[in-house]
């Protein structure tokens, strides 16, 4: 009688084994040559999870050299990818998401109880057995900060040419189109033609660009808290660039620009709300611009007006207030130039205010970034590695 012995396949424990000779190929396929779209239909941050599952196996066999080697090669490869793609938002966002996910994994599976409070029983079984990787966590944390700074830099460079045009020059309120004097409108359009460049960017284009940044970060599985900080930094940049331009240009210091600005800022605020980003602190970074827009619109005649301006413009320096009042240009018979005595009144009222007396905003200022710990609910043994990654030399253990 024939007996068939059925061999039960050993359960996958969420570890990946490879021969040391294959480390270079692993890093090449998973980091150096990785394109974000290859893993777009899979679990977000799949490369980070795969790397961590390889680290777990090296830890399991107690091979500290293998752990060292893989982590060093990985960090090295990520740095090179970033250097090669130093103006590519998508690549930078992708590696920020993956580096911070790898960092979260090193914490979540460290065995340190402080990081395990949200772990499932299965996740606790998957904790590292032999090594404490706290020093590598520090390296990955520093690397994440570097990548974040690159991401902000890339996004700012993309937005830079759009800001003045969309915030101050384009006419997003249709009814305002006829308010500007002919000279101004002609100058703008002839400037564009002479330059051979595209017609000015609209607010819609700026918002579309912000939307693209946001969607890319979300698609890559970047922690929402980090995405919020990127958006806040970009709003700071919109504020700084727009305000500086306003402070240097007579032709935009008018009542109608004030109206335009207020409308544009409300549209940006609406966008934040739509993306559930209104708690990010982004709109607070625009307070100086909001006040400048209001300053262009309020009455500037009586002593009461001066008092109102002083209590309104808390986020603007005295120098900025005076500059805007001096530049203020009436565009029709209902508006009037601000008198010297009115400006002197404002100066007298605010002379004791303690502030940094500078006219222009520091466009390079960056808020310190915080990376909150974000453990994942994903269980490592459920991960599937698509064949398209060319990692068939990895053995599931």
């Amino acid at each position: 009688r024939q007996v068939t012995v059925q061999r039960k396949e050993k359960d996958f424990e969420g570890m990946l084994e490879y021969y040391k000779e294959d480390e270079a190929l692993l890093v090449k396929n998973l980091v150096t040559d990785m394109k974000p779209n290859v893993v777009s239909a899979t679990v977000p941050c799949l490369p980070a999870y795969i790397l961590f599952m390889c680290i777990r196996h090296a830890d399991y066999i107690n091979d500290d050299q293998k752990v060292h080697s893989l982590l060093t090669s990985t960090i090295n490869a990520i740095k090179k990818v970033l250097k090669k793609n130093n103006d590519d938002f998508e690549m930078t966002s992708f590696w920020l998401a993956n580096t911070s996910r790898l960092l979260h994994c090193l914490k979540q599976y460290s065995g340190d109880e402080a990081f395990m409070t949200q772990n499932s029983a299965k996740q606790n079984e998957h904790c590292l057995k032999n090594f404490d990787l706290a020093e590598y966590r520090q390296v990955l944390s520093d690397l994440s900060i570097q990548i974040y700074q690159q991401l902000v830099r890339v996004a700012e460079a993309i937005m830079q040419p759009m800001i003045v045009s969309s915030m101050l020059e384009s006419e997003s309120i249709p009814s305002l189109a006829g308010v500007k004097p002919m000279g101004y409108r002609n100058r703008t359009s002839s400037f564009d033609c002479e330059d051979g460049g595209p017609a000015g960017y609209t607010l819609e284009a700026l918002i579309r660009q912000l939307g693209q940044f946001y969607t890319t970060m979300a698609d890559h599985g970047l922690d929402p808290e980090i995405g919020e900080q990127v958006v806040r930094q970009l709003f700071y940049s919109i504020n700084a660039v727009t305000l500086n331009n306003l402070l240097l240009r007579k032709d935009v210091c008018s009542w109608s620009t004030g109206m335009q600005l207020r409308y544009n800022i409300s549209q940006l605020e609406e966008w934040l709300r739509g993306k559930n980003l209104h708690q990010s602190g982004a709109i607070a970074t625009m307070e100086p611009l909001i006040q400048a827009a209001q300053l262009l619109q309020v009455k500037k005649k009586t002593s009461q007006d001066a008092e109102a301006i002083c209590s309104l413009c808390t986020a603007l320096s005295l120098q900025q207030i005076v500059k805007i009042l001096n530049l203020y240009t009436p565009l029709n018979e209902f508006e009037e130039r601000v008198t010297v005595s009115f400006i002197r009144d404002i100066q007298n009222r605010l002379q004791d205010r303690i502030e940094i007396n500078q006219l222009l905003v520091d466009t390079k200022h960056t808020f310190p970034v915080l990376f909150p710990y974000t453990p994942s609910a994903l269980s490592l043994e459920t991960l599937h590695i698509p064949a398209s990654l060319n990692l068939d030399f990895l053995t599931r253990v």
Binding site: V67, I75, K83, E113, F131, D132, E135
Partner: peptide
């Protein structure tokens, strides 16, 4: 519950030290 395991701290250079060691330099040149 089982006592928590003692794990060996793996020493790592800092990112700045890695940068000083030039490990991030392009090694593609001949």
């Amino acid at each position: 519950r089982p006592p928590s395991r003692i794990r060996v701290l793996l020493k790592a250079p800092t990112l700045a030290e890695m940068e000083e060691m030039n490990i991030f330099e392009d090694d593609e040149s001949p």
